[in-house]
């Protein structure tokens, strides 16, 4: 890995880490949701510090350059995140829908009682 990339990765990681902490303080992000991002940025910092090890691992796994390996890890991480988010969204959708139904049926019932 080139020194420029390593610096960019470290700066990016620190920025995202700081952002996470700030959003938690502002109560805009739940701690359990931010942990995965903090862990991600931590791993990126580790990868840019120990680039020798990353390079060794990359060659062992058949990557042409260790940069590719870093990007691969990032893409994998993001895909998994998006998938989990999608799952959560469906779940929430379902819950909102059921609440909606519950309210509608309840209101209907109350209205009939008044009559």
């Amino acid at each position: 890995m080139s020194i420029t990339l390593r610096i960019i990765l470290i700066i990016g990681s620190i920025l995202s880490f700081v952002l996470c902490v700030r959003k938690i303080k502002q109560a805009k992000l739940k701690v359990e949701n931010s942990i995965i991002w903090m862990a991600g940025s931590f791993i990126l910092v580790l990868m840019s510090i120990f680039d020798k090890f990353v390079g060794w691992l990359a060659t062992k796994m058949g990557f042409m350059a260790s940069v590719n390996f870093v990007f691969f890890i990032m893409i994998l991480f993001l895909i998994i995140q998006v998938f989990i988010d999608n799952m959560r969204m469906s779940e929430l959708n379902e819950k909102i829908k059921n609440l909606n139904h519950y309210i509608a049926l309840k209101e209907n019932e109350d209205k009939n009682k008044e009559k």
């Binding site: 909102i96 829908k97 909606n100 139904h101 309210i103 509608a104 049926l105 209101e107 209907n108």
Partner: peptide, 24 residues
């Protein structure tokens, strides 16, 4: 008539109807 507080699409409308039918 059952009216939903949030518009949630055709599927949701049918499902609430089915729930109503089951309830009564």
């Amino acid at each position: 008539m059952v009216s939903l507080p949030i518009n949630y699409g055709l599927t949701s409308g049918i499902q609430v109807g089915m729930k109503y039918a089951k309830k009564y």
